[in-house]
């Protein structure tokens, strides 16, 4: 099939950038979206043009490196897939497809479709961990964890930190990302000692980074390739309220 692409091109973070149109011919429905871009880039390189820069690494939907806004939707039209797992069979011959980078002030565009997501790392630094220096751990069976808690913690821990939640949120909020980590660690007995400080510090860091607030619209969950549920944000709020009450 033949596809028309309108792609965001921006030389660097100082450039203003604009949408540019490209034609891609002979697209196989079995190609992944990124492979279709690979083919376009090969052609651009041969004709001496600058290939389109985009991030991707594992290309199996787990590393969280890739992420494009396709036709206005983070990770494209298909539910619960990353961009690298979106295949061209989700489109039709003759389609015009818009491709843009994640947009949020804390996610600066570095080039074309690549953004800086360092803010997420800094949010984790603020409290997204359990303090357990190497060698200090008791036997793994010392503390049993109810299976339901372990499973729920796992569900939250599947967050891949891709940033689709922020890209999709009309408020540019990182609440789902923060909530996923607070929930993962807060559900486990090992995470209890730092539960209050973790919630407060991570939320404070997200504010400091310039992410917006949550108004419970739910676009984050709809865009999340791992299906992280919106109720985790309620859980985060309960932890924050609990922490504030505890702190007095």
């Amino acid at each position: 099939m033949n596809i028309t692409l309108r792609v965001w091109r921006q030389r660097n973070s100082d450039d203003t950038g604009q949408m540019q149109t490209y034609q891609v011919t002979d697209v196989s429905p079995d190609m992944s979206f990124l492979e279709m871009l690979d083919v376009l880039n090969e052609n651009l390189t041969i004709s001496g043009e600058d290939p389109i820069a985009f991030d991707s690494d594992c290309r199996e939907g787990i590393c969280g490196m890739c992420g494009l806004v396709i036709n206005g939707l983070a990770h494209g039209p298909k539910e619960r897939v990353t961009t690298c797992q979106l295949h061209m069979r989700s489109f039709s011959d003759g389609d015009v497809i818009d491709v843009e980078p994640w947009r949020a002030e804390p996610f600066t565009v570095i080039k074309d479709l690549i953004v800086d997501r360092g803010a997420f790392d800094r949010i984790i630094q603020a409290g997204g961990f359990i303090t357990a220096p190497t060698g200090t751990a008791p036997d793994a069976h010392a503390v049993p964890v109810p299976k339901l808690d372990a499973d729920a913690a796992f569900d939250a821990a599947t967050c891949i930190g891709c940033g689709a939640c922020v890209a999709a949120c009309p408020n540019g909020s990182a609440s789902l990302f923060v909530a996923a980590k607070v929930t993962h660690l807060g559900l486990l007995p090992q995470g209890q000692p730092e539960r209050h400080s973790r919630a407060l510090d991570m939320v404070a860091q997200a504010d400091l980074e310039g992410f917006g607030g949550c108004t419970q619209i739910g676009e984050c969950t709809a865009a999340c390739p791992k299906g992280i549920q919106l109720d985790l944000i309620s859980r985060l709020n309960r932890d924050v309220l609990g922490a504030l009450a505890h702190r007095g």
Binding site: R6, W8, M19, V69, N71, G72, L73, D98, E100, R103, A104, E105, P106, A168, P170, N171, G172, S173, D207, G210, F211, G212, G213, T215, I217, G218, E219, A222, A223
Partner: peptide, 30 residues
């Protein structure tokens, strides 16, 4: 406050910050 933070986080454009006009209502916005 929430509105200002949202504007700051989205360059003042909120849900309309993408050039594409194909998903004006996002994935599921009411």
């Amino acid at each position: 406050t929430l509105w200002r933070r949202a504007r700051r986080a989205t360059g003042g454009k909120g849900g309309a910050r993408y050039a594409s006009s194909k998903a004006p209502r996002g994935a599921q916005r009411s």
